[in-house]
Structure formats: C-alpha cells, structure tokens
C-alpha cells in the first residue's frame, strides 16, 4: 500500500501519521503543499495541525494550495482520503466534504481523550472494528463543532455516512457526552461514496501501547484490508 501525507506550514501531526503508516508497512511519502503532482497513492492523508495559523477560517487557506487541486482530483476518481482534525477542516473548506466545523460550543480549545462509538463498519476505514464498539481516542481542537443543514444531516444519518459519534463508557450518545456541540454528536463523516473520511479525533495518537493506547490502530489496519 502506498500512502501520501500532505504537509502544510503549520501541520503538526504529519510525522505522527507517517509513523503510524510506516509501522503498518505503508510505503509513505511526505508531500509539501507547493508540489503540483501527487505520487500514485492508495491513501492520501491530510494531517492535523494549524495550517497557515488558522488564518481566515481553519483550513481555508490550505484548501486553495497547489497540491489540494491534485487531492481533489484523486478524491473524485475514488482514491481513499483521510482528513484528521485540521485535515477534516481542509477537506470541508475545499468542498470534498459537506458542512462546516464551527468554534467549539464551550469556546475552549479541547485537548483530551474522549470516547466514540463506531456507528458502521461497512466501509474501507472501519471494517476491522465492530459496529457499536467504543473506542478511546484523543481530540485536540478549537473548531470541531460540526454543523450541516437538515437535509444533509438526514442524508448522513440514512446512508451510514457517520462512522463515529461521541459517547460515554456505556455508549450513551447525548448532549452530556458531546464535547464540542457537534450536531448529533458527530465525530466523523464520509462523502457519499465513502472514499473520503473526515474525523476530528486523532487515530494516529493511539497506535502504540508504549506511547498511549491502541484503539486507533484498527483504522490503519482496516485501510490495508
């Protein structure tokens, strides 16, 4: 499996993702945002961080960079694209995913471990997990409050396009278990073809017992399947 990780000025989770991918024997390349060509990749990762210092809106400037037009083309042709945190914001700003990520409802930057419940494993990214499995992942963001219009929300709910929702240890999904105000406790969404995933939690931070825990590993294993 070949992967590419896109790097912007201000990306800071790019190397963590690369380490996770290389651990699983992906042949990974780091691609600087000024590049105009993307190497042939089975997986493209848009990593977390603060691209361009979050100027204007998180992800707005990165969405207009050279390499993003290549990423958009690849995504439209069916390549697997994973946007994590700021990467999710970039995928939304460039139009590959619908909706918007607003400021957290509590107005605070949240950096902590949270729980999410797998809503659907019928896709390329979560097939190594069980449906309703509860995962411990880490979030670190200021704009993770997902918002979309009613029609799109219904589309997401009815077509298994919401793979992860914030929950508690019993799997309850409600306002109390919602860290950032995200509509319907959404932590991740797919595009209609399920080849493009945007998620606020960081799976790459949970791939090694020495560092933390391993609940994020299944996502990278799923991608190899």
């Amino acid at each position: 499996m070949k992967s590419s990780v896109i790097v912007f000025p201000g990306s800071n989770c790019d190397r963590d993702v690369a380490i996770a991918l290389e651990k699983l024997q992906f042949k990974n390349s780091m691609i600087w945002h000024k590049e105009t060509e993307l190497p042939k990749s089975d997986l493209i990762v848009v990593p977390g961080g603060f691209s361009y210092g979050d100027y204007l809106r998180s992800g707005a400037i990165a969405a207009k960079s050279n390499i993003l037009s290549e990423v958009i083309n690849a995504g439209k042709k069916g390549a697997l694209i994973l946007g994590i945190c700021n990467g999710f914001q970039i995928l939304i700003e460039c139009g590959l995913l619908k909706g918007a990520l607003l400021r957290n409802s509590g107005l605070k930057f949240i950096s902590k471990n949270i729980l999410v419940k797998v809503q659907s494993n019928n896709n390329k990214f979560f097939n190594k997990y069980k449906t309703n499995e509860i995962l411990k992942l880490n979030i670190a963001h200021n704009e993770g409050n997902y918002f979309t219009d009613k029609k799109h929300l219904e589309e997401l709910e009815n077509n298994e396009l919401i793979p992860l929702k914030y929950c508690d240890e019993k799997g309850n999904i409600n306002l109390k278990t919602n860290p950032n105000g995200s509509i319907n406790n959404i932590a991740a969404i797919f595009n209609n073809n399920k080849n493009i995933l945007g998620m606020m939690p960081h799976p790459e931070r949970m791939v090694d017992k020495i560092l933390s825990e391993e609940d994020g590993l299944g996502l990278f294993l799923s991608l190899m399947n």
């Binding site: 619908k98 918007a100 918002f147 979309t148």
Partner: peptide, 8 residues
C-alpha cells in the same frame, strides 16, 4: 470563493 464560507 474565499472570504466567506457560504454554508455558514
């Protein structure tokens, strides 16, 4: 194209 995100 850039200054506003017309969804929100």
């Amino acid at each position: 194209k850039l200054l506003a995100n017309q969804i929100i």
